[in-house]
Write a protein that binds this DNA or RNA. Structure first.
Length: 914
RNA sequence: GCGCGAUUAGCUCAGUGGUAGAGCGUCACAUUGACAUUGUGAAGGUCGGAGGUCCGAUCCCUCCAUCGCGCACCA
C-alpha cells in the first residue's frame, strides 16, 4: 500500500469501477446473483436538482444522506433502486438565461423569438446538467444512471399530458378568471407558495373618496382605490348600519366611482375605520367579498404595474400614482389620518418584484372540489368515494400511510393544507411544459391533448428599407435589407426544428426572398400565390405613410378609400380564398405561408372570427414572429378545424409532482412501477415540504390512488460557519466539488452527516471537513499497518478449527468481537431510525479511539512475537478492520472500498452483506 | 395573532431521568512512529432563567427571556 492515501486518484478510479460493475442497477445485482430475485425492494428517487448551474452543499448533503440509505439497504440484500434526474425548473432557469442574455447582448426573450430563446435555454440546461452529473458522481452517489430522467424529456411529457387530461376529466383542473399573483418583473403569474413576505414600513392613509361620501376608509395602497366598487362594513356595526344597501356616485380625485355599501362578516369592526374599500380586481380578499356580493370588477393596474384609468393617472406607475393621489386628496382636505405601519409586502421569490394582484384568466387545480376516487389503494379510502384533494392529502399523512420525520413537520404540513387555496398552474413563461390545451380558433372551445394533424405557420417577410423609412409598401418589388435578411434567418431557424413540407409565398420580392431563406433552411418546396400579396395601395405606393395620410387621408381601412387601391376587405377576400385553396390541397402537410403584415391581419380575422374593430386592434405581426396554427379534427362545438395551442406553460411543480411515478414511465404500466412504486422513502430539505412533497402527495393520491412514498425524511439546510444561508452574493458558499478535490469526497460526506440531526440546520466550515480528512488518513494507515504486518503463514491450526470457525486463545479477542457486534447492533438501529449522525459519530469514535488507539496498540505486542501469536493478532485485526469498513462503507464509500479491495481482491464491498 | 425550532466547553454542535460528550481551538508532555502527523494528559460547563413532578432533571411539565423559522393577517 502507498504510504499516502491519494484521494483524487482513488476516488475517481473507484467510482468508475462501481459504474462498470453495473451494481447501481438492481437488475444487474439480481442477474449477477448479489441480490435475490424475490428480495424486498427499496426505492428512492433523487430530488432532481434544478438545471440552473451547479450543485451547492445542500445538494451534497442530500446526496450523502440518500447514498447512505441506499448503500445500507443494498448491503442488506434489498433490491435497491435510486433514480437520478434533473428538473428543468421553469422560472428559475428561464430567468437565469434571460438575465445572461440581457447582460451580454442587451436583448430580451422577445427579441430572440420563442424557438431561439428556448434553444438557448436548452443549451444552458444541457451544460448545467452535464456539470451537475459530474458533481453528483464525484460525491460517490450510487445512482442507477441507466434510469436517468429529466422533468422536461419526452417520457415525462407524456406523463404531464396524461396527468393534465385525467385531472381535467375529473373536473379538478379548470380555467378561471380570478385574482392571481402577478409578478411584474417576471411577467408571469406565480402561485401562493412562490411568494416571500418582506416586512416594510408603509403609510396607512385614512380618507374619504370625496366630500359627499359619508364613510372614511383606510389603505396603504390608495392607487388601487380608483378600482373600488363597494365599501364593506360589518353587519352589526351601528355606525354604518344606516348606509348598508345605499349606492353612491363619487368623484375620487377626478375618477368617477360607483360605490355600493355592503355588509360582510369578513370586516373587522375594530380595524381602521371599520369600513373596507373593496377593490375586487386588485386584492384576493376583496375579490372574494366581491364574489359574495356580485360586485363588478374594475381593473385599474396593468401587467407592467401601470395605471389604466383615463385621465391624468393613465400610464402612471402604480407607485407614482399613489403619491399623486395622496397629494390630490391632501389638496382637497380629505385625508383624516396618516400612520406609519409595518406591513408584509408580497414579493416574488425569483425576481424580488412586488406582487401585483391582478384578475387573469388562468388554469387552476381545485383543491376543495369533491371528485370520485377511482380504484383507491389508500388506507381508509374506498374506491368510488367522493373526496377533495385537500382531504386526500391530509388523509395520507393522518392515516400513517406516509410518515414524516421529524414528526413535528406533520403539524406544519396539516396547517399548510388547512390554508391551501386553489393552485394556479399556468405560467406566462416559455421554458416548461406547454399547457396541452388547444383553443378552437373560431369559438375558443378548449380541447385537451388535441391530436395535431398538420401545422400551418403564418410568417411575415423581413424588413426592407421602405419598412424602415415607414413608406407605404404594397405591390412594389423591394428587396430585404440586412436586418430583414437576419430576421428571415431567425424565422428560418425557428422553423428548422419543424418538419416543413411546403412554403406558399406571396410573389412580391421581399416575401420571395424570405421564402427562399426559409426554403434553404428547411429544404421545403416553394410555390407562389398571387392572392397572398400585400394590399394594393394605389397612388400612395412608395410614399411616406405620414405624407400619404396627409394628402389622401388614412387609407388603411376596411373599405377602399382611394380609387385604384384595395381596402382590407378586398385583401381578406383573396387571401382567405388562397388559404382555403391550399388547405384543401395540402391539408396533410406542414405549410409555411410567407406573406405581408396586412394580409396576415386579414387571415387572423377569418381564423379567429374577429370583428373589423378587433382586427384593427391586433398588434402588427413582427418580422420575426411565427404564428403557429394547428389543424386537427373538427371542433366538437363549432366544426372549425384550426386551433391555437395555449401559449402558457405549466408551473414547474406540476411536472415535479409527478416525479415519484413519472420516473417509472407512467402512464405506461412498467415493471419498475409495479416493483418500486410507492417509493420507500422521500428524502429532501424541509424548505420544499410545501412546494414539492405536498404536491407529490396531491398528484399521487389523485392520479394513482396511492401514496407516492412511505416515509418522508426532511434534512436541514447547510449554512456557513456563522449560520448564514450560503449564497453567491454573500460569497460564503463552500463548493462541494472543491472540498472533494481538496479533502476527498469521503471527508466531505462525513462532515455533512456528523453534527446534523434531522430537520435541523447544519453549520459547516472547512475546518470540520479537514478534520474528517484526517480520519480518512487514519483509516488508511490503520489498514496499511495491518497489511504491513501480514504474516506469511496464516492458517495456524490453533486459530482455525476443523469446522471452519475460528477459535481464539485470548479472551480479549472474544471481547473485541462482542464489542464490535454490539456496535453493529447500534449502528443498524440508528440507520433504521434515520439517525445517521449518531451512527457516523459512533463509527468514527470506534475506529479511531478503540480500534486504533486501544486494540491495535495492544496487538502490536502480538505482531512482534512468534508466528502463531503474530498470525492470531493479525487475524483479529484484519477481522475487526474489515467488519468496521463494512459498517463505515455507506458513510465513506471510497476509502472503505479501496482498502477492502486490497484485503479481499476481486470482492466488492458495495455489494457485500451487511 | 397561531405554530415550530434553538439556547450545553472559547467556537460549531451531539447527547441522556442517575458522576456531562465530540470536532476545531488552547496549554503541557511524548513521538519520525502505521499516521503531510499522531499519542497521552490538562484547562475550560450551576447544560438560557424561574418554578414544578421525581429519591434524583440538562433531559419530563409550566411560565418567561433571547435568537431563528414557518403560516396567517396586512382595510
Amino acid at each position: 500500500m502507498e504510504s499516502r492515501y491519494d484521494v483524487n486518484e482513488v476516488e475517481s478510479r473507484i467510482y468508475e469501477m462501481w459504474e462498470k460493475s453495473g451494481y447501481f442497477n438492481p437488475d444487474t445485482c439480481v442477474e449477477k446473483g448479489v441480490t435475490k430475485v424475490g428480495a424486498e425492494p427499496f426505492s428512492n428517487i433523487l430530488p432532481p436538482p434544478n438545471v440552473t448551474g451547479e450543485l451547492h452543499m445542500g445538494h451534497a448533503a442530500m446526496l450523502v444522506i440518500e447514498d447512505i440509505m441506499v448503500r445500507y439497504n443494498r448491503m442488506q440484500g434489498k433490491k435497491t433502486l435510486w433514480v437520478p434526474g434533473t428538473d428543468h425548473a421553469a422560472i428559475a432557469t428561464q430567468s437565469k438565461v434571460e438575465k445572461e442574455i440581457s447582460k451580454k447582448e442587451d436583448k430580451n426573450r422577445h427579441d430572440l423569438g420563442r424557438e431561439e430563446f428556448l434553444r438557448r435555454v436548452n443549451e444552458y440546461a444541457q451544460k448545467s446538467h452535464d456539470f451537475i452529473v459530474k458533481q453528483i458522481k464525484r460525491m460517490g452517489a450510487s445512482l442507477d444512471w441507466s434510469r436517468e430522467a429529466y422533468t422536461l424529456d419526452a417520457t415525462r411529457e407524456k406523463a404531464v399530458h396524461a396527468a393534465f387530461q385525467k385531472l381535467y376529466d375529473m373536473g379538478l383542473i379548470y380555467r378561471g378568471n380570478r385574482v392571481v399573483n402577478w409578478d411584474p418583473k417576471g411577467q408571469t403569474v406565480i402561485s401562493d407558495d412562490e411568494i416571500i413576505y418582506e416586512e416594510r414600513k408603509a403609510k396607512f392613509y385614512t380618507f374619504r373618496y370625496s366630500k359627499d361620501f359619508p364613510i372614511a376608509i383606510s389603505t396603504t395602497r390608495p392607487e388601487t382605490k380608483v378600482g373600488d366598487t363597494a365599501v364593506a362594513v360589518h353587519p352589526d356595526d351601528p355606525r354604518y348600519k344606516k348606509f348598508v344597501g345605499k349606492e353612491f356616485d363619487v368623484d375620487f380625485v377626478g375618477v368617477p366611482l360607483h360605490i355600493k355599501v355592503i355588509a360582510d362578516e369578513a370586516v373587522e369592526k375594530d380595524f381602521g375605520t371599520g369600513a373596507l374599500g373593496v377593490t375586487p380586481a386588485h386584492s384576493a380578499i376583496d375579490w372574494e367579498v366581491a364574489q359574495r356580493h356580485k360586485l363588478p370588477l374594475v381593473q385599474v393596474i396593468d401587467e407592467r404595474a401601470k395605471m389604466m384609468v383615463d385621465g391624468p393617472l393613465k400610464g402612471m406607475k402604480a407607485i407614482e400614482a399613489r403619491e399623486w393621489i395622496v397629494s390630490e386628496l391632501a389638496k382637497q382636505g380629505l385625508i383624516e389620518k396618516e400612520e406609519e405601519v409595518t406591513q408584509n409586502v408580497s414579493t416574488a421569490e425569483r425576481t424580488g418584484a412586488i406582487i401585483e394582484p391582478l384578475p387573469k384568466l388562468q388554469w387552476f387545480i381545485g383543491v376543495n372540489k369533491k371528485f370520485k376516487v377511482e380504484s383507491s389503494k389508500l388506507k381508509g379510502v374506498k374506491s368510488g368515494s367522493e373526496k377533495t384533494l385537500k382531504e386526500l392529502m391530509k388523509h395520507a399523512v393522518e392515516s400513517g400511510e406516509i410518515k414524516i420525520a421529524p414528526d413535528r413537520f406533520e403539524k406544519v404540513y396539516f396547517h399548510w393544507i388547512d390554508n391551501l387555496r386553489d393552485w394556479c398552474i399556468s405560467r406566462q413563461l416559455w421554458f416548461g411544459h406547454r399547457i396541452p390545451v388547444w383553443y378552437c380558433m373560431s369559438c375558443l372551445e378548449p380541447h385537451v391533448n388535441l391530436e395535431v394533424k398538420s401545422k400551418w405557420f403564418l410568417v411575415r417577410h423581413g424588413e426592407t428599407d421602405w419598412n424602415k423609412e415607414k413608406r407605404s409598401q404594397g405591390s412594389s418589388d423591394i428587396s430585404l435589407n440586412a436586418t430583414g435578411k437576419e430576421q428571415a434567418e431567425i424565422i428560418a431557424r425557428q422553423l428548422k426544428s419543424e418538419k416543413v413540407d411546403l412554403i406558399v409565398s406571396s410573389p412580391l420580392l421581399r416575401a420571395k426572398e424570405t421564402a427562399e431563406i426559409i426554403g434553404e433552411a428547411t429544404g421545403a418546396e416553394i410555390i407562389f400565390d398571387d392572392r397572398l400579396r400585400e394590399k394594393n395601395h394605389g397612388v400612395t405606393e412608395g410614399m411616406l405613410i405620414e405624407e400619404a395620410n396627409k394628402k389622401y387621408g388614412n387609407s388603411y381601412t376596411y373599405e377602399a378609400t382611394i380609387s385604384g387601391s384595395e381596402g382590407y376587405a378586398d385583401v381578406e377576400l383573396r387571401a382567405w380564398e388562397a388559404f382555403l385553396h391550399h388547405k384543401k390541397d395540402h391539408h396533410h402537410k406542414n405549410v409555411v405561408i410567407v406573406s405581408h403584415g396586412g394580409t396576415i391581419r386579414t387571415l387572423k380575422k377569418r381564423l379567429r372570427n374577429l370583428s373589423i374593430e378587433e382586427m384593427f386592434a391586433l398588434p402588427g405581426t413582427k418580422n420575426t414572429e411565427v404564428l403557429e396554427i394547428d389543424s386537427a379534427e373538427k371542433c366538437k362545438k363549432c366544426g372549425s378545424d384550426f386551433y391555437e395551442q395555449d401559449s402558457d406553460t405549466l408551473d414547474t411543480w406540476f411536472s415535479s409532482g409527478l416525479w415519484p411515478f413519472s420516473v417509472f414511465n407512467w402512464p405506461q404500466e412498467t415493471a419498475d412501477l409495479k416493483t418500486y412504486f410507492p417509493n420507500s422513502v422521500m428524502e429532501t430539505g424541509y424548505d420544499i415540504l410545501f412546494f414539492w412533497v405536498a404536491r407529490m402527495i396531491l398528484m399521487s393520491t389523485a392520479l394513482m390512488g396511492q401514496v407516492p412514498f412511505r416515509q418522508v425524511y426532511l434534512h436541514g439546510l447547510v449554512r456557513d460557519a456563522k449560520g448564514r444561508k450560503m449564497s453567491k452574493s454573500l460569497g460564503n458558499g463552500i463548493d462541494p466539488l472543491e472540498m472533494a478535490n481538496k479533502y476527498g469526497a469521503d471527508a466531505t460526506r462525513l462532515s455533512l452527516i456528523i453534527g446534523a440531526s434531522a430537520g435541523n440546520d447544519l453549520k459547516l466550515s472547512e475546518d470540520r471537513i479537514r478534520g474528517y480528512r484526517n480520519f480518512s488518513t487514519k483509516i488508511w494507515n490503520i489498514a496499511r499497518f495491518i497489511q504491513m504486518n501480514k504474516p506469511t503463514i496464516l492458517d495456524l491450526p490453533s486459530v482455525k478449527q476443523s469446522d471452519g470457525t475460528k477459535k481464539h486463545r485470548k479472551t480479549d479477542y472474544v471481547q473485541y468481537l462482542d464489542e464490535l457486534e454490539k456496535l453493529k447492533l447500534e449502528i443498524t438501529k440508528h440507520l433504521d431510525n434515520f439517525e445517521f449522525h449518531l451512527a457516523g459519530e459512533k463509527l468514527y469514535h470506534y475506529i479511531w479511539h478503540t480500534l486504533a488507539d486501544v486494540i491495535l496498540e495492544k496487538e502490536k505486542l502480538g505482531l512482534r512475537s512468534d508466528d502463531a501469536a503474530k498470525a492470531e493478532s493479525y487475524d483479529i485485526l484484519e477481522t475487526l478492520l474489515l467488519k468496521s469498513l463494512k459498517m463505515l462503507h455507506p458513510f465513506m464509500p471510497f476509502v472503505t472500498e479501496e482498502i477492502y479491495g486490497i484485503f479481499r481482491p476481486g470482492k466488492m464491498l458495495m455489494v457485500e452483506k451487511w
